[in-house]
Amino acid sequence: MNIFRLLGDLSHLLAIIILLVKIWKTRSCAGISGKSQILFAVVYTSRYLDLINAFISPYNTIMKIVFLAASYGTIYLMYMKFKATYDVNHDTFRIEFLIAPAAVLALIVNHAFEPLEILWTFSIYLESVAILPQLFLVSKTGEAESITSHYLFMLGSYRALYIFNWIYRYYAENHYDLIAIVAGIVQTVLYCDFFYLYITKVLKGKKLQLPA
């Protein structure tokens, strides 16, 4: 564990909490993509199946359980409790176009052709593009509430911090995982345009509005 990884995990946790609290407090999930939330639930489920056969540390186990619970909790709030506020007409990204290629790629490019390993690889590939329905929703409506922007910023920071973690681990531990690194870089790049808008607009107190 190094500082970059810890900060990355905390950003990730904060993003998830921001989203849950926002939906709960406003009693609304307007502006949030349920498709992205479904993809994240698929990501955590396929990656954290190792909860049953691998123990790393109490920290690791607790975080995995929290991510899984928060993810399914968000889906419950969006698709059950506050379903009436869900922006279904704008949330039209076809997630099968992300799931199918991630699955095929995981079968071809992996560390070992074993069920849990392929599921882990699939989760890494799918996570790298799981935010696309959310970014698509923001681009369709042309704006995002500032709290949604904070959520996206924390979620993007998490993977960016993980890149620093991987650089650190490469030099300090001689550890690296090319699958995670390449997918993590793709994931971070997808946020770059958003980071720019966040820094130039949201941090100056303006609403995140896309140019017409």
Partner: peptide
């Protein structure tokens, strides 16, 4: 990187 070591990250 070995095949198993990535399981220590989240």
């Amino acid at each position: 990187g070995s095949a198993k070591s990535h399981h220590d990250e989240l």
